[in-house]
Design a protein around this nucleic acid. Sequence first.
DNA 1: TTGAAAGCGATACCAT
DNA 2: ATGGTATCGCTTTCAA
Lengths: 358, 358
Amino acid sequence: MSQRKASGDSGRATIRDVAQRAGVSVASVSRVLSGNYPVSDELRRRVMKVVRDLDYVTNAHARSLAGGGTPTVAILINNITGAAFTHVAKGVESAASLRGWLTLVGTTGDDPERELALVNLMRQQGVAAVILLGGAYDYDEYQLRMARFARSLDAADSHLVLVGRPPLEGEVPATTVDYDNEGGAYAMASHLLSAGHRRVLVLPGHAELTTAQGRLKGAQRAFEAYGVPLDPGMVRHGPYDYEHGYDAVEESLRQGAAFTAVLAGTDVVAAGAAQALRAAGLRVPEDVSVVGYDDIPLASQLTPQLTTVHVPYEEMGRAALRAVADRRESGRRRVGDADHLVLGTHVVVRQSVRPPSQ
Amino acid sequence: MSQRKASGDSGRATIRDVAQRAGVSVASVSRVLSGNYPVSDELRRRVMKVVRDLDYVTNAHARSLAGGGTPTVAILINNITGAAFTHVAKGVESAASLRGWLTLVGTTGDDPERELALVNLMRQQGVAAVILLGGAYDYDEYQLRMARFARSLDAADSHLVLVGRPPLEGEVPATTVDYDNEGGAYAMASHLLSAGHRRVLVLPGHAELTTAQGRLKGAQRAFEAYGVPLDPGMVRHGPYDYEHGYDAVEESLRQGAAFTAVLAGTDVVAAGAAQALRAAGLRVPEDVSVVGYDDIPLASQLTPQLTTVHVPYEEMGRAALRAVADRRESGRRRVGDADHLVLGTHVVVRQSVRPPSQ
DNA sequence: TTGAAAGCGATACCAT
DNA sequence: ATGGTATCGCTTTCAA
């Protein structure tokens, strides 16, 4: 019944099927296909004909077991739906495919268990690198956890790459591709301050998220630089989503908070904030200015177009992959050897900021 | 120098390393790890200890060569940045990970060459299925091309799944997960017509794209049903992006076209259209109504919130994976056996439609 | 319950 | 330029 290997009938054709049918050795078929070895035209013709007839493709698993194999990188995201992450992923994928590499994607849903499981799964796959995207929750064990990931991957000839979060402390075999998060926030807040705003509602994000921490710190530094006190009551933490932006503004308004501008942690939060302002009969930017962070497409599609901080997400993705590829080519480097890359950010001035009216 | 296998030092630890160090056979280690075989507690303890010490994970390539292995599905997208696709991908990924499956992602950039290369690459990987996302360009060879993909994959014990596009003609071993594209457009157009709109600017998308064709056809049917002639000059084709929406409206206005509503092919196009209307001093929806299609988050984040057609993208992704998984479990089915699934769509009424003012 | 050994499909070294 | 074959790491009979 289940006569396996009856005649290359069921399942995929193997290199042996091709060899047999072409009347040559498997070694020859392998040579023709990899193309990195001198082969007679006659042989090549014979083999390729059969390859086409059988619609043969080599078994990637066997190949990578035997030596060769397509390098693969894994990218782990919290939520594939986030526009910012999506652009990093695009950068990684495009740079990978440019080199003929494959990209695996896994989503963690902010679940440490799942993150661990995925890192191990990727290790099993023998990926060239695991790229972790997005800000991290800075809980106690975080550093240890990441250090463990890094060492595990390193021991398996793989590599850990952190994108969009601060580098790890100590001598850990990991690469970080980050952006000037705090600097961007500093510039954005300064933009608001120099326009004359003094009372601004700040929505940095979750207090434990590294990106939110950086953005808040940048804003605080700007306020200090301008000698303007930043009322702690004007800082509201919450998730990076539309609802949070909306709710935070609505609530502040209800509590009678007086502010002439909103400094949001992301463009999506800014969108929610703007909507809440409008719902309260306030005009943006005539009555209240609103700024975001990230510069995702949404920012320029809103009305008014959002003034925000541009983060080179796609470029970060490309940089991450380049770092991995370089490291492969030039043999592994020593720990701590230029493992940290920081890309610049800058304010994109659009239409959502005006000097305070009164 | 390059003494390989000196002592399981360099590279990943193998099952042999574990066996040796635990003083048992590789077979036993394999049994302990796969857990699908009776094993003494003592043995298990010994093996697991070493596994932890060595931080060992099995080599997925070797495993899948030998028989077992993690099922993997590939999802091929034109542009990973599109919000709609992203949600399908999320559905696929979540359903996959629920079963312990892996997800590979590749982007084609609308390039047939690359699409072919990717399908073959995925075939090499021995994926359980290749999921093609998004509308297709209905050029001549399309059907033949897809049929070839389908047969190739089928012959390799894999499977082709088409998501968001019409099913293939004839007896082709492929599964289609689609949504009622035309029906949604019909309902959306009817909504506009029943509100009293008679002159509406239609921006269905690229004329060759199957989704655009369906959306246009649905709209046309609605106009017919209402006995309202749809001026061909009021239909403008173009890409599914913000710029197209903006430009199309701007140009129509410049040419003096008179319309009281815009029926856009996607939410993003609608966003562009709305922006252009505002730029021209027209209010939405007081002066001109605007509707979209897809119901991506953007739709409810715009001002005014967009009335649009909801498409269950994430659910489609889940359905696609379920179809593949079912097919695996229950052995392959015969060609043409309930290979076509169509999910419903419906209008989501929000704030961007008003009866025409005059 | 445990071990030995035969593949799985491809690569690359060693002969010819 | 070609062919034979050991090998990659693991799973799975087949014996013990």
